[in-house]
């Protein structure tokens, strides 16, 4: 639906985008002295109503159906009435705090219960305010040697620290993440394997967060399933 430009009278061309259903109509005025140039491809967009809204509703409903079936099939735990004189062994916090409780087993409460969670929250909050987190450069793509050196120092320091406090549960994930970091250091965007290309592209923030996620999952799982009376190690498949 383009109007034929009237060449004689005006020194500009006008145009109307034809795809009216998908994006609002845009009227273009291009002066003769400049040439029209598209700087960014405008993305295909959909109306929130009804496309997005109903998809969201369907997603919520699918989850609800799942939860309804879980609620029908599995009863929520309920134990005897609260009795301050009978301490169950072990007394466990809700599962999402069991990572913390697991740490309380190793460190003094002021460290495991206060310092660590506070630092985690602060760290989470400040993530978007540090450029180091915003750069998407692979960690070892620049300055490889010195960064690798720092990586070694940090790895040895953390291993010693965790070994000193006998926190083998946290040591294992740390060592695994460090192993992958070293693998990343040996990789480059030109590596043959796609996995190594992927590793090479990961920035520092990725490694820290992955380490945190790994520790969180391992500590929580250990606290939930592998701890018995007196917070001793038990195998969940053995009664």
């Amino acid at each position: 639906m383009t109007d034929p430009p009237s060449k004689d009278k005006k020194d500009f061309v006008t145009g109307v985008d034809s795809n009216a259903r998908k994006s609002p109509r845009r009227v273009v005025f291009v002066t003769r002295r400049t040439s029209a140039q598209v700087k960014a491809v405008d993305e295909d967009q959909v109306q929130t109503f009804p496309e997005v809204l109903f998809r969201a509703l369907v997603a919520i409903e699918v989850l609800s159906i799942l939860l309804v079936w879980i609620a029908l099939l599995f009863n929520a735990p309920l134990e005897g009435v609260a009795d301050p004189s009978h301490t169950p062994n072990p007394a466990k916090a809700p599962w999402y705090f069991l990572g913390l409780q697991e740490m309380l087993h190793y460190f003094p409460p002021v460290v495991a219960g206060v310092l660590v969670p506070t630092l985690v929250i602060i760290a989470l909050i400040v993530i978007p305010y540090f450029n180091i987190n915003i750069e998407a450069e692979g960690l070892f793509l620049q300055d490889r040697q010195s960064r690798l050196r720092i990586c070694y120092v940090v790895a040895v320091a953390m291993s010693l620290f965790l070994t000193y406090f006998h926190v083998y549960v946290a040591l294992v994930p740390t060592l695994i993440v460090i192993a992958f970091m070293l693998l990343a250091a040996q990789s480059s965007p030109q590596s043959a394997s796609p996995f190594r290309r992927y590793l090479a592209a990961q920035p520092l923030s990725y490694w820290i967060m992955t380490w945190f996620l790994f520790e969180l999952v391992v500590l929580t799982v250990v606290g939930t399933f592998f701890r018995g009376p007196g917070w001793s190690w038990v195998w969940p498949w053995r009664n």
Binding site: P50, E51, L53, F54, R55, L57, V58, E61, V62, S64, I65, V68, W69, A71, L72
Partner: peptide, 26 residues
């Protein structure tokens, strides 16, 4: 699978209500 989202919403809602109705039946 669903046609447009609105139709999908109708189908899933029906399933959801049916699941909910099991509780009183139980």
């Amino acid at each position: 699978l669903f046609g447009d989202p609105i139709r999908a919403f109708g189908v899933v809602s029906l399933l959801f209500l049916m699941s909910l109705a099991i509780a009183p039946a139980k």
